[in-house]
């Protein structure tokens, strides 16, 4: 009898995340297992909300789904280090490579404490700021009201001199249109996905922070798989991680194309600007280090490892990094 794998996802069937990552992952499981693994698909939040991802995976409501620390921030410590400004590499591909390398030592214990195992890592592209008022340097942000999703991102907005405003994404479009907020901090790809570019006129590209969006697997399900199917799962999961990042890379490129067509002024942050930003957000690092000083490994260990990886992959092309997937695949994730 084939083993059913319930794959659920928050976005609808038509979304790129479903089409290019989750569904492909299911198909790969079926194919590589010669049909012994049988994916059952639940896109569009039909089984549970994305905020319930950990609970849904832990109890077996689903087998694989998004389980994002950002919705349970207070249950995590070191993991929140990934959401420090400019912590992860600027390449989408390199970012997931770095997460895979950091996970076993720094994040695994925290993540598994919530009753799940990691299926695969992923991260959003860096967050940029889309505004209705001209923003061409970090100084222009001063006093602007910017919708931020909460947590670390809210603090970043504050440290950059803007006023963070919390609101649900469903209210954000109207609020942006009517001027309740002057801007939105979100990845360029998602700015277009939520059609916010219809309102915004200036995209200030700072890529200031990524949000890690790992997918979890039900541990009972995973542990019950025979060894050869575990291998199938591991391979497919690793591919899915990179598929997620490739998807985002393509989405960003097409979003920038759309913005160009619609006449949105896109400004890439200059190195001087980024240096300035780094200085402005530095206290967030201090707070993180202090909060995680007594932990083992400590916050300082994580920052050191993250910085090393960032510098290492900054010097490599995506093609080179992708080759590492085969020669030096991620180990110890589960």
């Amino acid at each position: 009898d084939p083993i059913e794998v319930k794959i659920s996802y928050n976005q609808p069937e038509t979304s790129p995340g479903w089409q290019e990552v989750m569904k492909v992952f299911g198909e790969e499981l079926a194919e590589k297992s010669d049909g012994r693994l049988k994916p059952v698909y639940y896109p569009g939040e039909v089984l549970h909300t994305v905020a319930d991802g950990f609970r849904a995976t832990g109890t077996g409501i689903t087998d694989v789904t998004s389980a994002w620390p950002v919705y349970q921030a207070n249950s995590f410590n070191l993991f929140l280090g990934t959401e420090l400004p400019l912590a992860l590499p600027t390449s989408d591909i390199a970012a997931v490579r770095a997460l895979n390398e950091l996970y076993p030592e720094f994040f695994k214990k925290e993540y598994e404490r919530l009753g799940v195992k990691l299926a695969f890592n992923a991260a959003t592209p860096g967050y940029d700021i889309l505004t209705t008022k001209p923003v061409k340097s970090v100084d222009d942000l001063k006093g602007l009201k910017i919708r931020a999703a909460g947590g670390g991102i809210t603090e970043i907005v504050e440290r950059l001199g803007a006023v963070p405003v919390t609101m649900t994404i469903s209210d954000a479009y109207t609020a942006f249109q009517q001027g309740v907020v002057d801007g939105i901090i979100l990845s360029t790809a998602d700015q277009v996905a939520y059609r916010l570019h219809e309102v915004g006129k200036y995209n200030y590209r700072i890529g200031v922070v990524r949000v890690a969006i790992p997918q979890a697997v039900n541990p009972k399900f995973y542990d019950s798989l025979p060894e050869d199917l575990k291998t199938v799962f591991d391979e497919a999961a690793l591919n899915a991680a990179y598929n997620y990042q490739k998807m985002y890379k393509n989405l960003t490129a097409s979003a920038l194309e759309t913005m160009k067509e619609e006449g949105i002024e896109v400004t890439e942050a200059t190195p001087e600007d980024l240096a300035k930003i780094e200085k402005m957000v530095a206290p967030m690092y201090d707070a993180f280090l202090e909060k995680n000083a007594d932990r083992s490994p400590s916050g300082a260990d994580l920052i050191e490892a993250m910085t090393a990886l960032r510098d290492k992959y900054e010097g490599m092309s995506d093609t080179e990094i992708l080759k590492l997937k085969d020669t030096d695949p991620a180990e110890g994730l589960r």
Binding site: T174, A175, Q178, V180, V181
Partner: peptide
Amino acid sequence: LYNGVFTPT
């Protein structure tokens, strides 16, 4: 709503 004071909610 139209002057950006508040959201519909």
